[in-house]
């Protein structure tokens, strides 16, 4: 079952960057890729739960600000140590200048 929920305005995220979004007490990270596509993942690193939105986005990679663990934010896949667990991703759509996440 889909559950599309507005996360933010599309222009709130810079190109090749990320912002934090809290919905119903859960933290998400919303990304805008260098190609202007939008993505969403859980907001916290799977290593020691630091907020990913404070990290650096380079191409399709988000790097955790705490110990530089890396994920492909388009798939959630961890990219080596110290990451042992992948990151949960969520479907995203942009409509009327707003970014929506499917919380499922």
């Amino acid at each position: 079952m889909s559950n599309w929920t507005k996360a933010c305005n599309a222009d709130a995220v810079d190109c090749e960057d990320v912002i934090p979004v809290a919905i119903d007490g859960h933290d998400y990270a919303v990304y805008r890729s260098p190609d202007d596509d939008y993505f969403a993942t859980d907001g916290h690193c799977t290593h020691e739960a630091f907020p990913l939105a404070d990290g650096l986005v380079m191409d399709n990679i988000i790097e955790c600000p705490k110990h530089n663990g890396r994920f492909d934010y388009t798939t959630g896949e961890g990219q080596g140590a110290p990451i042992c667990e992948n990151l949960r991703t969520y479907p995203v759509k942009v409509e009327g200048g707003s970014v929506y996440i499917d919380l499922g």
Partner: peptide, 11 residues
């Protein structure tokens, strides 16, 4: 505070 400088140090 916290990880406020992390991104810049990474760059």
């Amino acid at each position: 505070p916290g990880i406020s400088t992390a991104k810049d140090i990474r760059v």
